[in-house]
Each structure stands twice: as structure tokens, then as C-alpha cells.
């Protein structure tokens, strides 16, 4: 049935339902896979980190893939989340699981603080977020804040360590991040974000409240990074500011998202599992070749699949169907 505003044809509805089903599969398969992951691979910490990175890559997916803003300083939210959760657990004595939510809140607060950076665009925005992330790191690591953050001497969550709880928390967190992306992708909100990515002014002339929606996307991405940092800190147990406010965290999340393909639900997950798997395998077995192999993989991606694995797959399917149509015609 057509509504008075949108209208639409049954075929469009069917295609949307098919897309939604594929997107839900992109949530279910990783969740099921990681649920049974320990049966096949015993390095629990690595699996927890992988789930955290899947979620982080999807945070980048929301901020960059859908909205077009590349946050090199994404690690600022991550570190703030690790410290927010730690302070809540150690100082406010909240249960560790609840502390993870405080991590999300800390990420959101930093995200709100950085909203004025949206006055900048493109590379300027990316660099400004990088500087802001470093600034947050410097504040947290400042020795004069030792009474609150323990300054440069790091934090210790050994008293609340629970491998089982951490694994379940990471799994639920990853599932929620994936579901958030499915909701964004299949909603009017997501459509508006994609329009903003194409042209902010044209989106505004289509009635989209650009400032409000991109801020909301930013806050969602910040919350994901905040909770991710909190779980990372909990799993790592003892961490220093340099471990959670590390620009490599942003680089990894961005590369994983781009490798798999942004703007999709499958892409960042595939990118993270493959690249983080490669990173871990090479790093463990042949650490001397790690940077060479990893660098070659990224160069190969940019040369042969600039739209990521999902984009590469879509192009291949399109070529195949065109060839079939040509053969039938």
C-alpha cells in the first residue's frame, strides 16, 4: 500500500526486505561465530579484542561510511571510555559490567565536547580530531591529575577481572553495535546521513537537519568507541594512557572498515576479522615480516578494491549479471 508521502512499488518493498534480511544475517553470523569462537580458538583475549575492533570499525562506519566524517582522533573516545569505566569501577564502586556503560558516557561527553570541530571539513576535520584525541590523552596522563586518573602510571582493574563476563560483555557489545548499524542503514536517519555525505547543502535543501543528524551519528560513534575502550581496558586489566590513547587504534579501526567496505553491515566486520586475524597470525608467527605483509595487504586493497571487499563483490556480481544479460539477449 502506498502512503501519501513516500509511495513505492511492491518490488521496492521486497528489495528492502531482502536487504534487511541480509543485514540481520550480518549481525547473526558474527554473533553466533564468536559465541562458539572459544571452541575453535583458545586465545580468549584476542577474540575479545577482535570483537571490540569489529564494533570500533562499525563506529567508523557510522561516522565516515554513512556521514563522511573521518575521525582520526577516534582513539580519544576510546581512551576516555577506558578511563571513564575504570574511574566508575574503582572510585564509584559500580559493578564492572555497569562500568562499561560509564565508558560509553565518557565517550559521548568527549564527543559532545568536540562537536565544534564540525565547522571543519575533510582533511582539516580529520587532523583536528587527531589533535583533540592527543589533547584528551595529555590531560588524562598529566601527573597533576594523578589523584584522579593516576596520571601517567596507568590503571589496574585486576580486582574486577572476570574472563567470562568480559567475553560476554564484548559479545553483547559487538551485537549491539552491529544492530545499531542495521538500524541506521535501514532507516530514514541512515538515508539522510548518506545524503549528508554526498552534499550537506543539497541534503539541507531536501529538508534534512544536517547539524542535528550528523551530531547524532557522531555521538553514536563516540558511544561505541567509549564502550569499546571500557571493555578493552577491563580485558587488558593493567593499562597506561599510551595503550588506550593510541592513534594506532584509530588507524586500525579505519583500515578495517575501509578494507571491508564502509556503508554496509558486512564490510567492516569482514575487514576486521580478516585483517585483525592476519595481524595476529603474522604478528605471532613471523613478527619480523609483520609490517611488510600488513603494508602489502593494504596497498593491494587500495589498488584493486578501493571500495573494500563488499564493493569489490558488488562490482563482480554486477559484471556477472551484465554478462549473463548479454548472453541471453
Amino acid at each position: 500500500m502506498l502512503d501519501s508521502k513516500g509511495g513505492g512499488k511492491p518490488l521496492a518493498g521486497l528489495l528492502r526486505r531482502k536487504t534487511l534480511l541480509l543485514d540481520l544475517l550480518a549481525v547473526a553470523i558474527p554473533v553466533i561465530g564468536f559465541s562458539f569462537g572459544l571452541n575453535f580458538y583458545s586465545n580468549e583475549l584476542l577474540l575479545v579484542y577482535m570483537m571490540v575492533y569489529v564494533a570500533l570499525a562499525h563506529g567508523i562506519n557510522i561516522s565516515y561510511g554513512f556521514t563522511g566524517y573521518l575521525p582520526f582522533g577516534y582513539f580519544g573516545f576510546f581512551g576516555a571510555g577506558a578511563y571513564g569505566a575504570t574511574l566508575a569501577i574503582l572510585d564509584l564502586h559500580v559493578p564492572a559490567l555497569l562500568g562499561m556503560l560509564f565508558g560509553g558516557v565518557a565517550g559521548v561527553l568527549v564527543g559532545l565536547l568536540l562537536l565544534p570541530l564540525f565547522r571543519l571539513r575533510g582533511a582539516y576535520f580529520a587532523i583536528a580530531t587527531l589533535a583533540a584525541g592527543e589533547a584528551v590523552a595529555d590531560i588524562v596522563a598529566n601527573p597533576s591529575l594523578q589523584s584522579i586518573t593516576n596520571g601517567p602510571y596507568g590503571e589496574n582493574l585486576a580486582s574486577v577481572y572476570s574472563s567470562g563476563q568480559i567475553y560476554v560483555a564484548a559479545l553483547v557489545f559487538m551485537a549491539l553495535a552491529l544492530l545499531a548499524v542495521v538500524l541506521v542503514k535501514n532507516s530514514r536517519f541512515g538515508l539522510s546521513l548518506r545524503a549528508i555525505k554526498e552534499s550537506e547543502y543539497s541534503a539541507a535543501m531536501a529538508g534534512v537537519n544536517v547539524v542535528q543528524l550528523r551530531s547524532l551519528a557522531w555521538v553514536i560513534a563516540a558511544a561505541i568507541a567509549g564502550v569499546g575502550g571500557a571493555i578493552f581496558g577491563w580485558a587488558t586489566t593493567v593499562f597506561y594512557p599510551s595503550a588506550v590513547f593510541d592513534s594506532a587504534i584509530s588507524v586500525f579501526a579505519i583500515v578495517f572498515a575501509l578494507f571491508g567496505g564502509t556503508g554496509s553491515v558486512w564490510g567492516p566486520t569482514l575487514g576486521t576479522v580478516l585483517l585483525y586475524g592476519l595481524y595476529s597470525a603474522v604478528g605471532l608467527s613471523s613478527p619480523q615480516y609483520f609490517q611488510l605483509i600488513y603494508g602489502l595487504a593494504i596497498v593491494g586493497l587500495i589498488l584493486f578494491a578501493p571500495r573494500g571487499l563488499v564493493g569489490f563483490g558488488r562490482a563482480a556480481v554486477r559484471r556477472l549479471s551484465l554478462r549473463r544479460a548479454g548472453a541471453n539477449g
Partner: peptide, 16 residues
């Protein structure tokens, strides 16, 4: 559809 979703009041449907 994006624009139609932000319309105040009635108007042509997307198909129209």
C-alpha cells in the same frame, strides 16, 4: 523519498 519524508502537509507521492 528523503525530501518527501521532510515535507509538511500533503503533496504528490514519490511515485507521482
Amino acid at each position: 523519498e528523503i525530501a518527501a519524508a521532510h515535507r509538511r502537509g500533503d503533496g504528490m507521492s514519490v511515485v507521482e
